[in-house]
Design a protein around this nucleic acid. Structure first.
Lengths: 105, 105
DNA sequence: TTGCAATATGTCATATTTGACATATACTAA
DNA sequence: TTAGTATATGTCAAATATGACATATTGCAA
């Protein structure tokens, strides 16, 4: 079972290459990353639930498939803004949003 | 009493200068702006509650007073990323966050 | 297998967001 | 009034996020 810390490491591009595996995140950074990953997961869940391909979603938000893939992977190059805009585009409910926020570990 | 539409207009820099006062926002854009404004309001509320000046908060997040002011004003030049990072820095609770999300009109 | 659609990954020029700064305005207290 | 502190607003070069693209990989049906 992967630890939460490793999960955060896997947010591609974050602190990778730092000398230590025990990357020190401030509580704020940690909360931010957890929230982001939670929302990315929600996005993927809602997209597949709606039977949309990454390409479909990309067109809806006037972006590209590769960016959608990066979003869903929690890539550090993607902003929360884009993730949240995308969530609204797939019709996320306030309830689902709030749940994703609350459940961010 | 200001209308919701006006409130959104006041999100400085958004669509101002367009020919019409009746700016057409897609439901997604609308939801995004409402969420942002809701979080900006929450930030200001929590900051003042903690008796922090904008300068204090700016130092905490390694930014500047002017950017904090813009954040709290809901300026369109400020990203949700920064607002949310700031919220975490002032110690927002998951509950407060979820509430701000849910209550976004 | 082969073929095709979906997804992942890397790069890059352009667009947006950034902190910093100057300066204006608002609000108290002396 | 004056002085001091807080907040607002405008600008800009530097930093970061962006869509687009090429290409790799996966998964699944024929």
């Amino acid at each position: 079972m992967r630890s939460n810390k490793q999960k955060k490491l896997e947010a591609k591009g974050w602190k990778i290459g730092s000398a230590s595996d025990f990357l020190k995140l401030s509580p704020e950074e940690e909360a931010y990353i957890e929230l982001k990953l939670s929302l990315c997961k929600t996005l993927k869940r809602l997209r597949t639930k709606k039977h949309l391909s990454q390409n479909d979603l990309a067109k809806m938000i006037k972006s590209s498939q590769s960016r959608v893939a990066k979003m869903e992977a929690g890539d550090s190059s993607v902003s929360l803004d884009l993730v949240i805009r995308s969530l609204f585009s797939v019709g996320v409910s306030k309830k689902d949003l709030a749940k994703a926020v609350s459940s961010a570990t």
